[in-house]
Write a protein that binds this DNA or RNA. Structure first.
Lengths: 165, 165
DNA sequence: GAAAGATGCTTCGAATTTGAAGCACATCGA
DNA sequence: TCGATGTGCTTCAAATTCGAAGCATCTTTC
């Protein structure tokens, strides 16, 4: 039977605060990135992900998964970034189907150009009201959640839907 | 001035986890809402916000701010929701410029229709790895951040582009 | 080793989002 | 009261997003 599930007040508060905080933070960051380096948030995420990779390269799919993005949107953005000279695309030697995306020097430059302001925003908005301990705690809480979400059937597991009889 | 700011590892971890958790959660919820009630996340947020209001009504701008949305996008979505009969729009008696948006019975019905599944997802993904205490802690950390962000120069410090002299 | 099925990416069309510009009403100051 | 400016919402064109369909390349399976 439908046992009408619910969230207790603390859960509701946490959930709403989470959504709201992220939305507000994202808007602020988006604006900063646009002004400081003419980048959208997604573009920044892509560059940052690439810059973080040891080789500076990733496959398209890995990028999309990392950023939680549709593949077609990624193709579009990769096209823009390539046209801007911030990344390059080349077929993956190991798998001719795949495309290896690599950040260019210009891409890294853009990152360093935008980073200080970015961090400024994150610090000023997100971390301002939090102590060092708070931050530790927050990370300690969210990391397991992240891992849990990553482990749980991503989004290809909706086939268990059965029609009601 | 340029003190080359940076984030310590814990801050970085918290920041990334926050972004990632929210993205993943949002994707999952989005899918559920679409299946259960043919609603986008934004539409759900709008309905939920209205349903939460004592009178079931809000002004457009308040809605946009609550959901962190551009006004034009809100106009578009309100148009869709109105056409679906989930809300109504009427001029604000107190301020003829303003538009009062009100949730309809059908809108409330739709909410109750999607709510159980929504909560199910949030519980299963977000709260599964968290104890009751954890949730309390999380809410206790995020709420001040939310308030801080709301207090800090809103999202558009330049609501109306004013000519520089 | 070839057909059948997966997988990785792009292309395509439709829906959505956005900022700028526009319109209507409100408010302020002389 | 009038004119100048501010505010609330909508309209508009352009950019971005997504899912479905299409291609090319692997991987099974017999």
């Amino acid at each position: 039977m439908a046992d009408s599930p619910s969230l207790d007040p603390a859960q509701l508060g946490a959930y709403f605060a989470l959504i709201e905080v992220t939305s507000l933070l994202r808007h602020a960051v988006e604006q900063q990135l646009r002004e400081a380096g003419d980048l959208s948030y997604v573009q920044f995420q892509l560059l940052a992900t690439l810059g973080d990779a040891p080789t500076g390269s990733r496959r398209m799919t890995d990028l999309a998964d990392g950023v939680v993005y549709s593949r077609s949107a990624l193709t579009y953005q990769a096209g823009l970034l390539e046209k801007s000279g911030l990344i390059t695309r080349a077929p993956d030697p190991d798998d001719e189907r795949g495309t290896m995306v690599t950040i260019t020097d210009a891409g890294r430059e853009r990152l360093t150009q935008v980073f200080p302001g970015h961090i400024e925003i994150v610090k000023g908005l997100l971390f301002e009201p939090l102590s060092a301990d708070d931050v530790q705690t927050l990370a300690g809480l969210l990391t397991p959640v992240r891992d849990h979400m990553r482990a749980t059937p991503p989004r290809s597991a909706a086939p268990r839907r059965r029609k009601r009889t």
